[in-house]
Design a protein around this nucleic acid. Sequence first.
RNA 1: GGCGCAUUCGUCUAGGGGUCCAGGACGCCGCCCUCUCACGGCGGUAACACGGGUUCGAAUCCCGUAUGCGCUACCA
Length: 462
Amino acid sequence: MVRVRFAPSPTGHLHVGGARTAIFNWLFARHHGGTFLIRVEDTDQARSTRESEDMVLGDLRWLGLDWDEGPNVGGPHPPYRQSERVAIYNRVANELIEREVAYRCYCSEEELEAKRKQAEVDGRPPHYDLKCWINRRPAVESPDAPHAIRFHVPEDGDVTIDDQIRGEVTWRKESLGDFIVVRSDGLPTYNFCVVVDDHDMEITDVIRAEEHLTNTHRQVLIYRAMGWDVPKFAHVSLILGQDRTKLSKRHGATSVSAYAEDGFLPDAMVNYLTLLGWSSPDGLDVFSREYAIEKFSLDRVNAAPAVFDPQKFDWLNGQYIHAMSASELAPLVRKFFDVPWLEEGIDVVKTSVHRLTQFEEALRFVLEYTPPEIERAFTEKLAEELRTNGTPTDEESYKAMVERLKTATGTKGKTLFMPLRLAITGLEHGPELVRSIPLLRHASERDERVLSPLARVERILS
RNA sequence: GGCGCAUUCGUCUAGGGGUCCAGGACGCCGCCCUCUCACGGCGGUAACACGGGUUCGAAUCCCGUAUGCGCUACCA
């Protein structure tokens, strides 16, 4: 039974990098019919807040990534918030001490800092000098001063993992110094809780960002010291900005919520982020969640970092919008722009739009009208046509109008349609007239702010 | 500095020794459709970081170099 987790630090909105990690975990779990859980990593008390946790969970919900266990929903391995699991960590830390693989370290931060600097000057690796390991006292002796708990790297501390994305990765024990598992304030460190939690929550596959790859060395040593099974690992590469540095705020929008506000769709976001690192076996770029779930596998995840391309994301979002019906789009668009004739408006302009927020601009010609400079004779004939036969309400009546105008004005093609477009929309470009003119008529009937086609033509004449 | 990871068109990628003078997608350019814009269709532009091996044969395997990134914390 596959069990995976997404473990965000609640320090602000969910970023696209975290979102992609969450998506890969979710796809993996759903593909295997396994369990996807959320664990909040809030041991860094200075930066973590409950508000941030709510934001992150809200962003995950918006993306449509449902989880089976986690804070609020619960599950068989509670609690799902690390700050509430400190007792568990302390119990394991004590066991490590009893097993003589960890020890209390009384060195002060200043002392350690000085030693690190000296080691650097001497050209030695800045590892802990083992002072408190050498002077360690029996585990039963109660501690008599503030101390941290340090893990001792054993003689057989070499580690090799078979990363599901990168293949075999090996570290020699010399590359590691004894490291802290519990700080002097009693709070555990990341590399320690992550092991305790992943074991306790029976995680089978750890799919996480590449920045954690080297941490895996420490973590595997803790698993071994406790005699626990080591899960499989898969380290996903970073997402970079256009300048090939790690994506951050200065690259513009990087949080999921910012894209939501910019009018991107959750489906498009999941699709795009999935494509950043994973490729479909059929070479598809546009695919549904169901398809991705069915086809997802870690062996098609690319190990190289990927640059986030806003243009392709924009194009993809457009593909989703174009494929949706006006009635599906209307409730989503209403959050940004609301008019009584919205659905017909969306139907008329949707192929020119890539984001929900662009409908307002695309439909501006309905609400706003500036009388253009047009040949008077043409305008008068047009006004007469509209007065006599009424404004077209559909394709059929539009075509009939066009035929009569051809006769009345003696023009056709561009010389007919350009002045017609200009007179009625006030603009040189826009959606097809066969759709725009009926839209303007219907909109003017339902919305007093909208000038009807005839009213517009009369404006030119007045 | 040490350790680790990565390196195919501008970007996302396919490719896992011959089928690759490297395929798809976005972008860009051109043509078509067309009242305009957009959509759509068709075509074009453009890449195996570098140097050594291994092999009859390397984008694909090995080594080195370069570059980028990560870790080397009582951050996660």
